[in-house]
Design a protein around this nucleic acid. Structure first.
Length: 396
RNA sequence: GGCGGGAUGUCCGAGUGGUUAAAGGAGACGGGCUGUAAACCCGUUGGCUCUGCCUACGCAGGUUCGAAUCCUGCUCCCGCCA
């Protein structure tokens, strides 16, 4: 049987920090001694309904715990989402309606099932409203576990405080509530991104105040988005959703800056190509591996072929959505048709035409001729830039 | 309770009566180059029935030939002192 030390080493291999040092290994030893699985906690912020690669970094780590026989406890922060987590943000997040939170959580759980083992032996899902919707007296008991000075140690709080930016009491409460989650479910280990380090560590203090064994902390590095700079997130538009199509996954991966590739290979636990492989080929390998993970090998090959034909050879994509346009007098005013077909404004359509960004069947549109014969346009492929295509069909 | 500061376009941020659809930056988008990378160059970035018109600088009203800029009221936000 594998030793706790080697299991621990395996789990911390691509992690950012294992706090306090050795705590994880101690927990693993404890589990062995007591012959029980560890309860490994992950808090979910139910604001974004779609799981993207950034989420999978932590989920994959949880899966490793499951594969070692431990039990994952997902906490849907339905109650805390009414507060807003200020992590890494300079401003307060908007609050969500209870309906939206539940819908998001369900969608999240369904998608998380693609990575996690949802066998009840190894998996548990809880909503923190279950215990956070507490009487005032209990809240006060929670609040007295922590001092303001402790909270202000958190970097973004202290930065904002020093800079004279607002910090609401509600935000200060967030780490306390998250910590109480660990009390409620008696977490042995809590996992999160490095931006959660403070919150997770504070959870230990709170557990101690409640007379519960302190959790081990394991943080994972943050995966940058396809812009190569910012944390992957849907609001920044730099994400790759695990539900997206093979072509989209492939294409979006290819837009990743070279410098970010190494971190993607590591955090997504994809074997990097042999030394000496060129940057572009490495990226292709990365893109294929990602597609393979969420689709299959055939899809990955197809996506690569599609990519090569479309972007290297400048051929049309295999599948082009149709757009039916209405034509009166047998003439179509292009800005209007483009606006309707691509969901942009007419002014924007005009600008694109002027800049030579609009092509009909591969021919750049002449800005002087914005009215085109509807019969000629019908059946043509209209393209904006490199990535947007629509087959225009006359609507009889 | 007292004092002070603020609300501008996707974001940040200039602008205190007149070529201001609003400097500059970021981001984004289009073109060139290319590996849908980076770097670099050029251009665009409120809407429209587009040599012009409409809308826009927290909300409402007012002064003025003319206001994001001045006045009044309102809403919201923030800091400091207590």
């Amino acid at each position: 049987m594998e030793s706790a030390a080697s299991k621990s080493a395996q789990l911390t291999a691509n992690a950012a920090e294992d706090l306090p040092a050795g705590a994880l290994q101690a927990k693993l030893e404890l589990a062995e001694r007591e012959g029980r699985p560890l309860r490994v906690k992950l808090g979910l912020d139910p604001t974004a309904p779609d799981i993207h690669l950034g989420h999978t970094v932590v989920l994959t780590k949880l899966r490793e715990f499951q594969d070692q026989g431990h039990r994952v406890v997902l906490i849907v922060g339905d109650y805390t989402a009414r507060v807003g987590d200020p992590s890494g943000r300079s401003e307060t997040r908007p609050v969500l309606s209870p309906e939206a939170i539940i819908a998001n959580a369900q969608s999240y759980e369904a998608q998380a099932g693609r990575i996690l083992d949802q066998n009840p032996e190894r998996y548990e899902l809880r909503y923190n409203s279950e215990w956070l919707d507490m009487p005032m007296a209990e809240l006060l008991a929670l609040v007295r576990t922590t001092t303001v000075a402790q909270l202000l140690e958190r970097e973004d709080f202290s930065t904002r405080y020093k800079g004279g930016s607002p910090i609401s009491v509600l935000e200060l409460l967030y780490p306390l509530m998250q910590g109480y989650d660990s009390v409620a479910i008696e977490a042995d280990v809590e996992i999160g991104g490095t931006d959660q380090t403070f919150n997770i560590l504070l959870g230990r203090d709170i557990q101690r105040h409640y007379g519960i064994a302190e959790q081990a902390v394991l943080t994972m590095p943050i995966l940058v988005g396809i812009d190569g700079v910012e944390k992957m997130s849907k609001t920044k538009g730099n994400e790759i959703a695990i539900e997206s199509s093979a072509d989209e996954m492939f294409g979006r991966t290819m837009r990743l800056p070279d410098e970010a590739m190494a971190s993607w290979f590591e955090l997504l636990a994809i074997a990097p190509p042999a030394d000496g492989t060129g940057a572009r080929d490495s990226k292709v390998a990365l893109a294929k591996a990602i597609v393979m993970r969420f689709h299959d090998e055939a899809a990955a090959d197809a996506a690569e072929a599609q990519f090569v034909s479309q972007f290297a050879k400048h051929e049309l994509p295999d599948e082009i959505d149709e757009f039916s346009f209405a034509a009166s007098d047998g003439v179509v005013h292009l800005p209007q048709a483009l606006a309707e077909g691509f969901g942009i404004s007419r002014s924007e359509a005009r600008r694109l035409v002027e800049q030579g960004g609009v092509k009909i069947d591969g021919e750049a549109v002449d800005p002087a001729h914005l009215d085109v014969d509807s019969g000629l346009l019908s059946g043509s492929v209209v393209q904006i830039g490199r990535r947007r295509f629509k087959r225009f069909m006359i609507d009889r």
